[in-house]
Structure formats: C-alpha cells, structure tokens
Design a binder for these strands. Structure first.
Length: 261
DNA sequence: TCTCGTATCT
DNA sequence: GAGATACGAG
C-alpha cells in the first residue's frame, strides 16, 4: 500500500507534494510544520518509544487521524479483535508507511481512546461518535458498512449459528418427508396386491388345500409388512411433529422476546 | 530493552 | 475531545 496522506478536508495541509496534518501552537494558531519540529524528519518515529518527552525542545506536529487512517485502524482492530489488537500488529495491518503513517505510539493512544469508546458504546452510555471527532467523516464513511465492532460481530455470529441450526432442521424434515412418501407408495402397492392379486373367498372352493394355505400365509405376511410400514410411518410422523412444534415454540419465544425489547 | 496498557497532561 | 506524554508492568 502506498503512503497514507492526510486529507485536506480533515484539517490537513499540503506540504511539498505530501499532505501533512496541521499542527497547533500553544493556543489556537495553526502553524506550518516547517516552523516546528526544527530537527526535521524526526518526529516520534525514530525515537525510542516513551523516552523523549519533548518538554525541552520545540513543539511537535500533532498527529491527526484522518478518515482514511481511522478506517484502516478500525479494519485492523476488527480483524484482530478489539482485545487482542496490539499497536504493532495494527500498524502492520494498516499497511501504511512513511511520514503520514501513525507511529506505534500514535496507534497506542488511538487504541486507548477507541477501546474506551467501544466500552461506552457497549454499556449504552454514548451511542454517538465512534471515530471520535477526529474525523466526522470517518464514521459516515466507514460506520455504515465497513466497521463491525466486536460486540456486533458476536451478535452476527450467534445469528449465523441459529440460521444454520434452522437449516439443518429443515433438511431433516425434508428427508423425513421423502421417506414417508416412499413408505406410502410401498403401502399402496401392498394394499393393491392384497385386494387384487389373490383369489376372492368365493373362489376358494375351487382351489386345492395346499394352494389355499399358501395363499393365506402369503396374505398374512403381507399384512404383517403392511402393519410394520404403518408403524414406521407413525414414528416418522411423530418425529416430524416434534421437530415442527419445537421450531414453532422457538419462533414464538423469539417473537415474544423481540416484542419485549 | 522493548512493548503494552493506563493515567494524566496539553 | 483528540492526541501526546509519563509511568509502571510483563
């Protein structure tokens, strides 16, 4: 990824082909970066972290989290999980280098605020303002689609699991119905055989004794099979009934819960 | 020594 | 409120 550039609309200023964030002097005045940071180039990047306070020296360019930077930051944090996200890994995931890029220190600080904000959000105290005023545009640009806070991600996951379960249940129901249908077809065949393929009682007198007995035993075995089929069908129907009633009660409970909310 | 998290400052 | 810095801990 190319170097990041602070956007002019985000209180950035174009500087030698690159866009640098504005820096503030003690009060309100906006100062040209060249007038500050006299050492030039240095900034926070090169120095050992947390070592220099800068108290003695000149002012430092205040880093500005633009919408684009915050979007990348947020994407990285969402990828890693807000609790697992570390400044260094965030920095790597953000894939930005050079002057416009945030230092670990910058990221650490931003992460601190971001976590606090997420905490507030999840406890319901402060529903607005995620990107922190640093970029009013960033929330508008990223919040709608790109950013999924960890909490929302959990809810999303739960929802997906629920949908998967429902899908499985439906598949089972369909399978059962298919089996039931086959059983019904077999039953019809057997019934048909019973009614039409054997001589009626009126003709019995014409048959010899052996054929008669064979016919009777065949008839009995068919009747047994038929009975078994019916029992299997009953079991399947009960199972299906259970599944359907379970799903129905789940839906009712869910509807009731959402109604309460 | 480096990195991180948190508190505090500007 | 945003970002920087200080400080202690692992």
């Amino acid at each position: 990824m190319p170097k990041l550039q602070a956007l002019p609309m985000e209180r950035g200023v174009s500087w030698g082909g690159e866009l640098l964030p504005f820096v503030m002097d003690d009060g309100d005045g906006l100062m040209d970066p060249s007038m500050l940071d006299g050492a030039g180039g240095g900034g926070m990047d090169g120095m050992a972290e947390e070592s220099s306070t800068g108290k003695g020296g000149g002012h430092k360019a205040r880093f500005v989290w633009t919408g684009e930077l915050h979007r990348r930051f947020e994407a990285a944090v969402n990828t890693l999980g807000i609790d697992q996200a570390k400044p260094q890994t965030i920095s790597q995931l953000m894939k930005c280098e050079g002057e416009g890029a945030p230092t670990r220190q910058n990221i650490k600080s931003h992460l601190q605020k971001y976590r606090l904000l997420m905490q507030k959000r999840s406890t319901g105290h402060d529903p607005a303002d995620v990107a922190g005023g640093s970029s009013g545009a960033s929330e508008g640009a990223t919040g709608s689609a790109g950013s999924v806070p960890a909490v929302d991600a959990d809810v999303h996951k739960e929802l997906e699991q629920h949908l998967e379960k429902q899908e499985m249940n439906l598949r089972m129901q369909m399978e059962l119905q298919t089996k039931l249908h086959r059983q019904l077809l077999v039953q019809r065949q057997l019934q048909h055989q019973l009614e039409h393929c054997f001589p009626s009682t009126g003709d019995m007198a014409c048959q010899d004794r052996q054929r008669y007995q064979a016919t009777v035993s065949l008839k009995n075995s068919l009747r047994e099979r038929l009975t078994k089929h019916v029992m299997v069908q009953q079991e399947m129907l009960q199972h299906l009934d259970k599944l359907v009633s379970n799903e129905a009660s789940k839906h009712e409970a869910a509807d009731a819960a959402s109604a309460v909310e």
